[in-house]
């Protein structure tokens, strides 16, 4: 599911994700030597030290590997989110993309009762203010509903 209302806004950083006909994809890298996949893109391989790595678009779906809820507002800098009463707790998790890597991301769900290790998740885009105070777009994962799985 893409988020058309976010189109046209600037990405929180270049090179993290791209929008495709099937929805957003994270831009990682894959080692041509040993096959290790990382996110974000790296210029060398952390496993075999090779510098022969290629761009690799990551799978959009995976399973929640672990999670927490960020209940207090992180300090600024570096956090650029809403100040004071505008802060809302948010979910954070690692999503395991099968055979690729586990990606850390904001989750669209912050209710601990509705988060469970192993649950299926899908990449989505989210609004996120950047350090200049502009509304930008970042990536996150959302739980897949029963009928979407």
């Amino acid at each position: 599911m893409s988020a058309p209302e976010l189109s046209g806004r600037e990405a929180i950083a270049p090179g993290l994700f791209t929008e495709t006909a099937d929805g957003p994809r994270l831009i990682g890298s894959r080692c041509r030597g040993c096959g290790v996949v990382t996110f974000p893109r790296q210029k060398s391989c952390a496993q075999c030290t090779s510098t022969d790595v290629e761009e690799h678009l990551l799978a959009r779906r995976g399973a929640l590997w672990s999670w927490t809820v960020q209940r207090f507002r992180p300090k600024t800098p570096p956090y650029a989110g809403p100040a004071g009463d505008g802060f809302e707790p948010y979910g954070v998790g690692y999503v395991e993309l099968p055979g690729e890597c586990r990606v850390e991301a904001i989750l669209t769900e912050a209710d601990p009762e509705r988060l469970q290790i192993g649950m299926p998740m899908e990449l989505t885009l989210l609004p996120a203010p950047n350090a200049s105070g502009d509304e930008a777009v970042t990536f996150g994962f959302r739980p897949l509903a029963e009928e979407e799985r």
Partner: peptide
Amino acid sequence: IGSWYGETGLMLTTQFFAMKIQRYME
């Protein structure tokens, strides 16, 4: 790491420890 990691609220040691023990408990 890129500045986006901190701007979006991921640059916290507390999150890491929470996620590590959450998985470990399971």
